[in-house]
Design a protein around this nucleic acid. Structure first.
Lengths: 216, 216
DNA sequence: TAACTTATCGACCAGGGTGGTCAATTTTAT
DNA sequence: ATAAAATTGACCACCCTGGTCGATAAGTTA
């Protein structure tokens, strides 16, 4: 399926995929326009339907592609040997930023699929894939983590939630700020202050939620 | 403007407004369909345009209405005499839940307007109103608050952010859960366990971020 | 070069939805 | 009974939809 499309040079593939990712994210499956996708991708409408025989086929291909990216560029790269909770957070967050910087459209699309999983009609196999991925994502911050370092006067699960919510809240606020500036064109040096702020926050969280040293 | 509409019995007004709130939220201004709004509101399309002379007029009316609801049902009811940070959080959260339960569509619409403020074309006066509201909302958790009770080994602003992010994270997770169940029809008794969980979390946060008593 | 395959295009299709109008009708008030 | 106000949906001209297809263009092979 889509052999012709996959024989294309990668940059041209990416242009089409990105155009489609964006369009489906913004408008949803039904309202998304294949005309708009073709135009944005810089190809004729006939060509789009030559690559993918229908709107649905294209959509399914996108889902598959987005899953693959998340798997290969994110999940597979996590070092699950690291047992320290905050180290894991640091790693996964850095990883997420890196992937986001290159594949932001794909990741936003993936988020859309997960959020609208009930309304988007997926094939049975894709739905299976989705469920498996969902489970895997849930373990990212828990698998092989040493929770014994957490303070004991607060239920472990509560600490975990609080930390997760704090980090996620910071991420969201950062994202909102980034939306103003043009995030895509920022290089690593521009990101430095934000990284540093994040590391500072992590240290503070450690101070809050880990046992005090003198108690160990 | 819209005198005819405002002479309608309130429940009929509400039906029209809710239909419009939902449609604009889901599809955005351009894609929203006046046909769909009329159908969902149970009125003829001609009637809709008899009430509001155009799609834009309707949209502006909605924005105004949503602002008014937020102002009267939420902002005006906050007790700014209360200086304890966590009491303020508790109050505003309870208030938010109460308003949300009655005016969920209006509030979601308001959130939409704030989020897409750059793309939605508002009149100059409405934009002014938006900016003022934005400022007022920002002070909800800071105005006349006694911050001296916060622990001193963490920068005040950091503590504030962490608490805000934690509460907001909990709220979001709750909202996602509620989406599964039918939130609209839940009575106060059904909400009890969630309220209790929330109060428990607040106590924990107090333990974390306030000075230890023996230090006072 | 000629023959053949593969890739690309956009005009075109039938169908449906768009915001908005309006003459006809019903409801309400006098 | 009469006038005024409220309500309706068929209708308008227009735009866009997913998808097709014959006409080219580009690439490959001999």
């Amino acid at each position: 399926m889509s052999e012709t499309f996959e024989r294309l040079p990668e940059d041209k593939q990416a242009k089409v995929l990105d155009a489609a990712f964006v369009e489906f994210c913004e408008k949803g499956y039904e309202q998304a326009s294949t005309n708009q996708i073709a135009k944005e991708a810089g190809i004729g409408k006939g060509t789009l339907f030559y690559y993918f025989k229908s709107k649905q086929t294209l959509f399914h291909y996108l889902v598959e592609k987005a899953f693959d990216i998340a798997q290969e560029e994110y999940l597979d790269k996590i070092n699950f040997e690291e047992t320290d909770f905050f180290e894991r957070i640091k790693q996964t967050t850095e990883l997420k930023w890196a992937v986001y910087h290159i594949h932001s459209h794909a990741l936003k699309f993936l988020a859309y699929v997960f959020m609208h999983a009930d309304e988007t009609v997926l094939s049975v196999e894709l739905n299976e894939k989705r469920k498996i991925a969902e489970k895997k994502w849930a373990t990212v911050l828990t698998y092989n983590i040493d929770f014994s370092k957490l303070r004991e006067d607060i239920p472990q699960e509560t600490s975990l939630n609080f930390i997760r919510w704090t980090v996620e809240g910071y991420r969201q606020e950062l994202e909102a700020q980034m939306k103003q500036l043009n995030f895509e064109t920022m290089n690593n040096e521009d990101m430095r202050p934000y990284f540093d702020e994040f590391y500072g926050y992590l240290e503070t969280l450690k101070k809050i939620y880990y046992k005090k040293e003198e108690e160990e």
